[in-house]
């Protein structure tokens, strides 16, 4: 038996200083200090202002530069409410050059006509595309949903089969069947977007299905609202205007061009880059993820501590 038992004060102190007794204090001290240093002094504040700040900085350069090459006019602007689409507004629609139509016809014949028919009139397997406009086609093809992988389930987003130019060529051909009709391909300058307005509009019109964080969710059997974390500003406006799948179609009388621009700005600037000031964001799915962390990591870690400092027999 150790002598400590009879040794009195000195022995008692030595007993307390054993690694087994000191370890919890040391660990907790370290944890506390790290926590306080890392998170207290306005670090939340800094990141909160950091993310929304680029509002004025980055334009959607890719889309705008492409657009300027393809634009011939703002010929067919579907604007019933709000301001007319224009470069100054940050949202306008492009007309695709005639030279795209011929290669587009070839691409369509090779990849789409099996289901949609040679003149895009549809058939038993697929809908009529005439009159839907270049914007609708651009949405489905550029998100990889078309060509379909599986016709029995909701079309899923996947890497697109066509590159940007091919996508525009197919869109141009479909548009050429019904000139002036349907949804045009928008160009969105999100740096002009109003994030406050976008927040309000998104909460009112979109959050009920896509969730307030834009993470998406299951709706009914086989139907779901997809995540918005991958969408581009052009695709967002195309989806608003064309109403793909189960999504309702929002015309310019309901969501004006200004509104559409603000929503696209809010989704791409705020929802796709959320201010996760508090640490790991857990996928933006709310208390489900948090509950798992609290129970498995929080309570779990503390039970392990119990197991460590308690007897096991």
């Amino acid at each position: 038996m150790p002598k400590d038992h009879q040794a009195g004060e000195a022995g008692t102190v030595r007993r307390w200083l054993r690694p087994r007794t000191v370890a919890p204090f040391a660990l907790v001290g370290a944890v506390g200090i790290i926590g306080l240093i890392a998170f207290s002094p306005g670090s939340a504040h800094a990141s909160s202002t950091a993310t929304p700040a680029p509002v004025q900085a980055t334009a959607n350069t890719a889309t705008s530069s492409q657009a300027s090459a393809y634009v011939s006019s703002n010929a067919n602007p579907p604007h019933l409410g709000g301001q007319a689409p224009s470069k100054q507004l940050g949202l306008y629609y492009i007309t695709l050059p005639r030279s795209y139509i011929a290669p587009g016809a070839a691409l369509f014949a090779a990849n789409c006509s099996t289901c949609h028919g040679p003149q895009a009139l549809g058939g038993t397997k697929a809908p009529n595309l005439q009159g839907l406009g270049a914007g609708t086609v651009d949405f489905w093809v550029s998100t990889g949903r078309m060509p379909l992988a599986n016709s029995s389930i909701q079309a899923t987003r996947k890497p697109p089969r066509f590159n940007r130019l091919q996508t525009l060529e197919v869109s141009a051909w479909v548009q050429s069947l019904t000139p002036g009709e349907g949804v045009q391909i928008p160009v969105v300058n999100t740096s002009l977007g109003n994030l406050e307005q976008g927040n309000t509009l998104f909460t009112l019109n979109c959050a009920a299905c896509h969730t307030i964080t834009g993470a998406g969710d299951a709706l009914m059997d086989g139907a779901y609202a997809p995540t918005l974390h991958l969408a581009t500003p052009t695709q967002i406006v195309e989806a608003i205007r064309s109403g793909p799948g189960n999504m309702p179609r929002f015309g310019p009388g309901n969501i004006t061009n200004t509104n559409a621009r603000d929503i696209a700005a809010y989704v791409t600037k705020v929802l796709q880059h959320p201010t996760n000031a508090g640490g790991i964001g857990l996928g933006g799915i709310g208390p489900v993820g948090e509950g798992f962390v609290a129970l498995l990591i929080g309570v779990g870690a503390l039970m392990l501590v119990c197991f460590w400092i308690g007897d096991r027999a």
């Binding site: 000031a277 790991i280 964001g281 857990l282 962390v293 929080g298």
Partner: peptide
């Protein structure tokens, strides 16, 4: 443990 979670893992943003 609580403050580690509070510092590193976001809850209810």
């Amino acid at each position: 443990v609580i403050f580690l979670l509070g510092g590193f893992v976001q809850i209810n943003p």
